[in-house]
């Protein structure tokens, strides 16, 4: 049976993990490679690396980092953050990433999704969507700072039609709150889309993951700080979910 996936997310800046982490037993928790390797050993199903380096030279640090990651871990990983061209994606996939995530660039130029899917196959193209509730759920860009006029569910359908292979759905309302995932929104997106949906934002306790899989119908759940700060261990989380009859790879 296809397992639900648990995905830790690492924010990267200038080749280093951003959020301070307290893995006391790691020699260098600021090294994304060491941290990713630790998560892979803890049976994380995938890892997402989000590069928030703002400088033009970001690719000079990101591509060698992706190569180091690919050399170290033997599970799939996705790289996102500022990806806006075929050349960006070519470099990252050639360096060993399985998938790339595009976000603002796809809103600014939706045809980019078609181009990337044609060039690399849908399976390599994740569209990240940052959504916030108002009268309706609206897509935000630029790291969640800038609202657009696009409704989230409308955008979900469009990115699928254009060839996205997966959706990474972040609820801006839930992100950082630790009060649970946006199960209602996730469920609406998952029922609408015929491609896998990764839920992100709000996971704070183990039962939140159970809820997002059962009520939210997510295919995968992503979290960052609760794993980095070891508030929840991936091993114990997966055991908890398996005991609750959710298909999980132990």
């Amino acid at each position: 049976m296809l397992a639900k996936r648990i995905i830790p997310c690492l924010d990267i800046k200038d080749g280093r993990t951003v959020k301070g982490v307290n893995f006391l037993d790691l020699r260098d928790a600021g090294d994304p490679v060491e941290l990713a390797d630790r998560y892979a050993q803890d049976s994380a199903d995938e890892i997402v690396f989000l590069d928030i380096t703002a400088t033009i030279e970001k690719r000079s640090t990101l591509v060698p980092l992706v190569e180091r990651i690919a050399n170290k871990i033997n599970i799939p990983f996705t790289v996102g953050g500022g990806i806006s061209s075929i050349a960006d994606v070519t470099a990252l996939l050639a360096a060993g990433a399985e998938k790339v995530a595009v976000n603002s660039a796809a809103i600014n130029n939706p045809g980019l999704i078609d181009q990337l899917a044609n060039e690399f196959g849908s399976q390599a193209i994740v569209v990240a969507i940052d959504s916030r509730e108002g009268d309706e759920n609206i897509v935000y860009i630029n790291g969640g700072r800038t609202p657009t006029s696009i409704r989230t569910l409308q955008w979900v359908k469009e990115v699928e039609d254009r060839g996205a292979g997966e959706i990474l759905l972040t609820s801006m309302d839930h992100d950082g709150t630790k009060r649970g995932f946006a199960n209602h929104l996730t469920r609406a997106v998952s029922q609408l889309a015929n491609i896998p949906v990764i839920a992100s934002g709000g996971g704070g306790q183990m039962n939140h993951f159970e809820e997002v899989f059962k009520e939210g119908q997510a295919d995968a759940a992503l979290a960052a700080s609760i794993f980095h700060y070891q508030e929840i261990g991936i091993v114990e989380l997966k055991k908890f979910l398996k005991e609750r009859n959710i298909p999980i790879r132990i």
Binding site: M1, L2, A3, R5, I195, P196
Partner: peptide, 13 residues
């Protein structure tokens, strides 16, 4: 078939 999500993506037994 389109009865479930495609691609089949992830870990399976």
């Amino acid at each position: 078939p389109a009865t479930d999500k495609v691609p089949h993506m992830g870990w399976n037994t």
